[in-house]
Structures are given as C-alpha cells and as structure tokens.
C-alpha cells in the first residue's frame, strides 16, 4: 500500500498548502494520491493537519492516516501528539525552532531550524516550503523538479516564487546535510 504522510502545525503555517502541493506533484507524476485535511473549528486559529497518501500505482485505498510513515511536525504540540503514532522506521521532520523537547521512539528524527532559515531568506511564510524541500530530500517521493513546477504554477513565475524556490532548496540541502547524523532514538 501507499506511503503515508502527515503534516501538522498551527493554522496559518501553511500546513494544508504543503500537503496540497505534494499531492499536486504526485498527480503530475501519475501516482495515486489523496489529500485529507482535518477540518472544522481547529482550522480557525488552532491546530491544522493534513494527511497525504501516495500510491506508486493505482488508486489510494484509504485516505486516512492513523499512523504516518512520514511526519512533518511544524510545532511542539504536533510533535508531541503525532510522533508516538509514527510507524517504527518512519521519518519525523521537526521544525526545531518551535520544538524544544525530544521524544524517544524507533523513528528517524530530523531537526531543522525552519523558522531561522526562512527568516534569513526573507520571510517566515516560506516555512512550509522549506519543510517540503526537506521532505523531498529525505523521501524522494516525487521529483524536486515536479514540485518546483507546481510551486511556479501556484505562486506565479514572478511574485513570491523566487523566495519559495530558495526556501525549497534550503530545506532540501539542510535535510541532506543533517540526514546522516540524526538520532534514531530507541
């Protein structure tokens, strides 16, 4: 069955958009895909999360992700809530600027200073794209060029695309650098 992704954070961090961009890229590569947001009051100022399932062939069986294989934790509450649910051997990508604790678990944890990196690039708004870059670097679930094509389509070739492109590669590179020396705590 397909690969399960869960991204979670505060409303306003672009969590749902990140999932949507990933889903769009998967569609462009003719993969089976589903995107499912947690909806309702929590969308308005509280926590936000969405599940993406990607099948290499055929349609997604179930769009629900109870136990992610890849978790992107944008903030501490998401990290605390979903890390314990991540499957053994899974990947947890953590925005270390908003997570000041470390849980143990049979997962590969990659801590990245997403806020700091994006501030250096010029806008905190790109945190989701930075983490998306990291996710692609660590999973190769879709090609980087496919994602960049989607970003260009969504953000417009001029507009905020250049910033987001930079954020994507920064996340991609940071994850690549750190991926090899990150704790897998048991």
């Amino acid at each position: 069955m397909g690969k399960n992704f869960l991204m979670a954070g505060f409303g306003g961090q672009g969590v749902l958009l990140m999932g949507e961009l990933l889903a769009k890229a998967a569609l462009l590569e003719n993969k089976g895909v589903s995107w499912l947001p947690a909806y309702g009051p929590e969308m308005r100022g509280g926590t936000a999360n969405c599940a993406v399932v990607i099948e290499e062939e055929g349609e997604v069986v179930s769009p629900l992700v109870f136990e992610p294989e890849v978790l992107v934790a944008f903030n501490k509450p998401s990290y605390l809530k979903f890390l314990p649910k991540t499957v053994p051997g899974g990947i947890v990508i953590v925005n270390s600027d908003l997570v000041d604790v470390k849980l143990s678990g049979p997962v590969r944890q990659v801590f990245l200073p997403a806020n700091q990196a994006c501030l250096e690039l010029g806008s905190m708004k790109a945190v989701n794209i930075y983490l998306l870059g990291a996710l692609i670097a660590l999973t190769s679930v879709v090609k980087a060029e496919t994602i960049l094509g989607v970003l260009k389509e969504v953000f417009g070739p001029k507009g905020v695309y250049p910033l987001n492109e930079k954020a994507f590669w920064r996340g991609y590179d940071d994850a690549g650098k750190r991926a090899n020396h990150v704790e897998t705590v048991n």
């Binding site: 889903a23 569609l27 499912l36 909806y39 349609e59 997604v60 769009p63 629900l64």
Partner: peptide
C-alpha cells in the same frame, strides 16, 4: 461523510 466531502483526489 465529512471525509468524502473534504478529501481531494485525482
């Protein structure tokens, strides 16, 4: 149901 209403698929 809410899942079917909110899910996005190709």
């Amino acid at each position: 149901d809410g899942i079917l209403g909110q899910v996005m698929e190709p």
